[in-house]
Amino acid sequence: MENAVNQKSVISVRWIKTPSMMAKLNNDGSCRDEQCGGEGLIKDNQGNFIFAYSFNLGQGTSNMPSASTLLCGLKCCANNGINLVWGEIDSLVLIKCIKRDWKPPWKIAKEIQQNQNLVEENGFNISHCFREANKLADKLASFSASCRITCIIIIIFFNGKGRR
Protein backbone atom coordinates (compact mmCIF):
# COMPACT_ATOMS: atom_id res chain seq x y z
CA MET A 1 0.00 0.00 0.00
CA GLU A 2 1.33 3.37 -0.93
CA ASN A 3 1.86 6.05 1.67
CA ALA A 4 -1.58 6.77 3.02
CA VAL A 5 -2.31 10.39 3.70
CA ASN A 6 -4.79 11.26 6.39
CA GLN A 7 -6.74 14.18 5.11
CA LYS A 8 -8.64 16.33 7.50
CA SER A 9 -11.38 18.67 6.51
CA VAL A 10 -12.34 21.76 8.40
CA ILE A 11 -15.96 22.67 8.88
CA SER A 12 -16.99 26.07 10.13
CA VAL A 13 -19.32 25.55 13.09
CA ARG A 14 -21.19 28.54 14.49
CA TRP A 15 -24.61 29.79 15.48
CA ILE A 16 -26.33 30.97 12.30
CA LYS A 17 -28.67 33.95 12.38
CA THR A 18 -32.16 33.36 11.11
CA PRO A 19 -33.83 35.55 8.51
CA SER A 20 -35.64 38.63 9.79
CA MET A 21 -38.71 37.91 11.95
CA MET A 22 -37.74 34.25 12.40
CA ALA A 23 -36.94 32.73 15.80
CA LYS A 24 -34.27 30.08 16.39
CA LEU A 25 -35.00 27.13 18.65
CA ASN A 26 -31.88 25.37 19.91
CA ASN A 27 -32.40 22.41 22.19
CA ASP A 28 -30.70 19.30 23.40
CA GLY A 29 -31.40 16.24 25.46
CA SER A 30 -28.96 14.34 27.60
CA CYS A 31 -28.75 11.04 29.45
CA ARG A 32 -26.24 10.30 32.17
CA ASP A 33 -26.40 7.10 34.21
CA GLU A 34 -29.88 6.47 32.74
CA GLN A 35 -31.12 9.84 34.05
CA CYS A 36 -32.33 12.12 31.26
CA GLY A 37 -32.97 15.80 30.96
CA GLY A 38 -33.55 18.39 28.31
CA GLU A 39 -33.15 22.07 27.70
CA GLY A 40 -34.05 24.49 24.99
CA LEU A 41 -33.83 28.16 24.26
CA ILE A 42 -35.45 30.37 21.70
CA LYS A 43 -33.77 33.49 20.37
CA ASP A 44 -34.78 36.10 17.87
CA ASN A 45 -32.82 36.69 14.66
CA GLN A 46 -30.40 38.97 16.53
CA GLY A 47 -29.60 36.33 19.17
CA ASN A 48 -31.72 37.91 21.94
CA PHE A 49 -33.44 35.46 24.29
CA ILE A 50 -37.17 34.99 23.93
CA PHE A 51 -37.51 32.08 26.36
CA ALA A 52 -35.75 29.03 27.72
CA TYR A 53 -36.78 25.81 29.45
CA SER A 54 -35.07 22.96 31.25
CA PHE A 55 -36.41 19.80 32.84
CA ASN A 56 -35.46 16.43 34.25
CA LEU A 57 -37.11 13.56 32.38
CA GLY A 58 -36.18 10.75 34.75
CA GLN A 59 -35.02 7.43 33.35
CA GLY A 60 -34.77 6.89 29.62
CA THR A 61 -32.61 6.21 26.63
CA SER A 62 -30.48 8.50 24.48
CA ASN A 63 -33.07 9.51 21.84
CA MET A 64 -35.95 10.12 24.25
CA PRO A 65 -34.73 13.39 25.80
CA SER A 66 -33.98 14.96 22.41
CA ALA A 67 -37.45 14.08 21.09
CA SER A 68 -39.20 15.28 24.27
CA THR A 69 -37.18 18.49 24.46
CA LEU A 70 -37.85 19.41 20.84
CA LEU A 71 -41.55 18.68 21.37
CA CYS A 72 -41.64 20.99 24.39
CA GLY A 73 -39.93 23.78 22.43
CA LEU A 74 -42.20 23.46 19.41
CA LYS A 75 -45.29 23.45 21.66
CA CYS A 76 -44.03 26.58 23.46
CA CYS A 77 -43.58 28.33 20.11
CA ALA A 78 -46.98 27.27 18.78
CA ASN A 79 -48.79 28.18 22.02
CA ASN A 80 -47.13 31.60 22.26
CA GLY A 81 -47.73 32.70 18.68
CA ILE A 82 -44.14 32.32 17.54
CA ASN A 83 -44.92 31.19 14.02
CA LEU A 84 -41.68 31.55 12.11
CA VAL A 85 -39.38 29.03 13.78
CA TRP A 86 -36.15 27.37 12.74
CA GLY A 87 -35.41 24.51 15.10
CA GLU A 88 -31.91 23.11 15.36
CA ILE A 89 -30.94 19.95 17.17
CA ASP A 90 -27.74 17.93 17.18
CA SER A 91 -29.49 14.57 16.79
CA LEU A 92 -29.38 13.55 13.14
CA VAL A 93 -31.52 10.50 13.97
CA LEU A 94 -34.28 12.75 15.28
CA ILE A 95 -34.13 15.07 12.27
CA LYS A 96 -34.27 12.16 9.80
CA CYS A 97 -37.23 10.62 11.65
CA ILE A 98 -39.21 13.87 11.85
CA LYS A 99 -38.62 14.55 8.16
CA ARG A 100 -39.89 11.01 7.46
CA ASP A 101 -36.59 9.89 5.93
CA TRP A 102 -36.13 7.17 8.56
CA LYS A 103 -38.53 5.07 10.59
CA PRO A 104 -38.42 6.19 14.24
CA PRO A 105 -37.28 3.93 17.07
CA TRP A 106 -40.42 2.44 18.62
CA LYS A 107 -39.68 3.88 22.07
CA ILE A 108 -40.04 7.45 20.76
CA ALA A 109 -42.56 6.89 17.96
CA LYS A 110 -45.27 8.88 19.80
CA GLU A 111 -42.97 11.88 20.39
CA ILE A 112 -41.78 11.74 16.76
CA GLN A 113 -45.39 11.78 15.51
CA GLN A 114 -46.22 14.76 17.72
CA ASN A 115 -43.11 16.61 16.51
CA GLN A 116 -44.03 15.82 12.88
CA ASN A 117 -47.55 17.17 13.42
CA LEU A 118 -46.30 20.42 14.96
CA VAL A 119 -43.70 20.96 12.25
CA GLU A 120 -46.16 20.27 9.44
CA GLU A 121 -49.16 22.12 10.91
CA ASN A 122 -47.17 25.24 11.79
CA GLY A 123 -44.70 25.31 8.90
CA PHE A 124 -41.74 25.13 11.28
CA ASN A 125 -38.32 24.40 9.80
CA ILE A 126 -35.99 21.95 11.54
CA SER A 127 -32.41 21.05 10.74
CA HIS A 128 -29.38 19.30 12.15
CA CYS A 129 -26.55 21.25 13.74
CA PHE A 130 -23.25 20.12 15.17
CA ARG A 131 -23.00 19.90 18.93
CA GLU A 132 -20.35 22.62 18.89
CA ALA A 133 -22.90 25.08 17.45
CA ASN A 134 -25.36 24.11 20.17
CA LYS A 135 -23.04 24.50 23.19
CA LEU A 136 -25.37 26.36 25.54
CA ALA A 137 -28.23 23.90 25.05
CA ASP A 138 -25.76 21.00 25.31
CA LYS A 139 -24.33 22.19 28.63
CA LEU A 140 -27.72 22.96 30.14
CA ALA A 141 -29.12 19.59 29.01
CA SER A 142 -26.25 17.84 30.79
CA PHE A 143 -27.09 19.83 33.91
CA SER A 144 -30.82 19.07 33.70
CA ALA A 145 -30.18 15.31 33.49
CA SER A 146 -28.38 15.45 36.84
CA CYS A 147 -30.79 17.92 38.45
CA ARG A 148 -33.31 16.60 40.97
CA ILE A 149 -35.84 19.32 40.17
CA THR A 150 -38.55 18.15 37.80
CA CYS A 151 -39.04 21.27 35.72
CA ILE A 152 -37.64 24.75 35.35
CA ILE A 153 -39.20 27.10 32.83
CA ILE A 154 -37.75 30.52 32.30
CA ILE A 155 -39.90 32.72 30.15
CA ILE A 156 -38.36 36.00 29.14
CA PHE A 157 -39.81 38.04 26.33
CA PHE A 158 -37.59 40.71 24.88
CA ASN A 159 -38.28 43.18 22.14
CA GLY A 160 -34.60 44.04 21.78
CA LYS A 161 -34.89 47.13 23.98
CA GLY A 162 -36.03 45.56 27.21
CA ARG A 163 -38.76 43.44 28.63
CA ARG A 164 -42.17 43.62 27.07
Rank of each mutant, 00 (worst) to 15 (best):
G38S: 07
G38L: 03
G38H: 03
L41D: 00
K43D: 01
D44M: 00
N45M: 08
G47E: 09
I50R: 02
I50G: 01
F51L: 15
F51G: 01
A52L: 04
A52W: 01
A52P: 00
Y53N: 03
F55Y: 07
N56S: 14
L57M: 11
G58K: 06
Q59M: 14
Q59R: 15
S62K: 07
N63V: 08
N63H: 12
N63M: 12
M64E: 12
M64N: 00
M64Y: 07
T69P: 01
L70D: 05
L74G: 03
K75F: 14
C76Y: 05
C77G: 05
G81I: 09
G81E: 07
L84M: 11
L84Y: 08
W86L: 08
W86E: 10
G87Q: 04
G87Y: 03
G87F: 00
I89S: 06
D90V: 06
S91W: 01
V93H: 09
L94G: 06
I95C: 10
C97L: 11
C97Q: 03
K99H: 12
K99A: 07
D101P: 02
W102A: 04
W102I: 01
P104D: 02
E111C: 00
E111D: 13
I112W: 05
Q113P: 02
N115H: 07
N117P: 00
V119R: 05
E120Y: 02
E120S: 11
E120L: 11
E121R: 01
N122K: 10
N122S: 05
I126H: 06
I126E: 07
S127M: 13
S127P: 05
C129E: 10
R131G: 06
R131S: 12
A133C: 11
N134Y: 09
K135N: 08
A137L: 03
A137W: 01
D138R: 12
K139V: 12
S142G: 15
S144R: 02
S144W: 04
A145R: 07
C147A: 12
T150D: 13
I153C: 08
I154L: 09
I155D: 10
